[in-house]
Computed example of a mutant assay.
Amino acid sequence: MVSSTSYRVEPYTPRHTSWPYSPSDFTRQDSSPDTSFYTSPRFVTHIDDAAIVSLREYYDSVLPRKGKILDFCSSWVSHYPPSIEQAVQRGELQVTGMGMNKAELDANALLNNGHIATSLPETSPSAKLDASTCVVSIDYLTSPVAALTSLRTATKSSGTVHLVISNRCFPTKAMSRWLRVDENERLQMVGDYLHFAGWKGIEIVEVSDGKATQEKGQEASGGLFGWMGMGGSDPLWVVRARNEIE
Rank of each mutant, 00 (worst) to 15 (best):
S4V: 11
S6D: 15
V9Q: 09
E10D: 15
R15Q: 11
T17C: 02
T17V: 10
W19M: 04
Y21T: 04
Y21K: 05
D25V: 07
T27I: 08
D30K: 12
D30N: 15
S32L: 08
D34L: 09
T35I: 09
T35Q: 13
Y38Q: 04
T39C: 11
T39A: 15
R42P: 02
R42L: 14
F43Q: 13
T45R: 04
I47Y: 00
I47Q: 00
D49L: 11
A50F: 06
A51Y: 00
I52E: 07
I52L: 03
E57H: 13
D60T: 04
S61F: 01
V62Y: 02
R65M: 10
K66S: 14
K66A: 11
G67Q: 01
K68I: 07
K68D: 04
F72V: 01
C73T: 09
Y80W: 14
Y80G: 04
S83E: 01
S83H: 00
E85F: 03
E85D: 12
Q86S: 11
V88A: 05
V88D: 00
Q89F: 09
E92N: 05
E92A: 03
L93S: 01
Q94H: 07
Q94I: 13
G97E: 01
G97I: 01
G99T: 06
G99V: 02
N101C: 07
K102F: 07
K102T: 10
L105H: 04
D106Q: 15
N108D: 14
N108T: 06
N113Y: 07
I116V: 14
T118Q: 08
L120M: 12
P121A: 06
P121H: 06
E122N: 10
K128Q: 11
D130C: 03
A131Y: 04
S132V: 10
S132A: 15
T133L: 04
C134L: 08
V135K: 00
V135H: 00
D139Q: 15
T142K: 06
A147C: 07
A147M: 14
S150P: 00
R152E: 04
T155H: 05
T155I: 08
V161S: 11
V164C: 06
I165T: 03
S166G: 14
N167D: 13
C169E: 05
T172Q: 15
K173V: 03
K173F: 08
M175H: 10
R177W: 01
W178C: 02
D182F: 09
E185M: 13
L187P: 00
Y193I: 05
L194F: 07
L194A: 03
L194D: 10
H195W: 10
G198Y: 09
G198I: 04
G201C: 07
E203N: 12
V205F: 06
V207C: 06
D209H: 09
K211P: 00
A212C: 07
Q214W: 10
K216M: 14
E219V: 15
A220R: 03
G223I: 06
F225A: 02
F225C: 01
G226L: 02
G226E: 11
M228A: 09
G229N: 13
D234A: 10
P235N: 02
P235R: 07
L236P: 01
V238T: 06
R240E: 12
A241L: 06
E246I: 09
E246R: 07
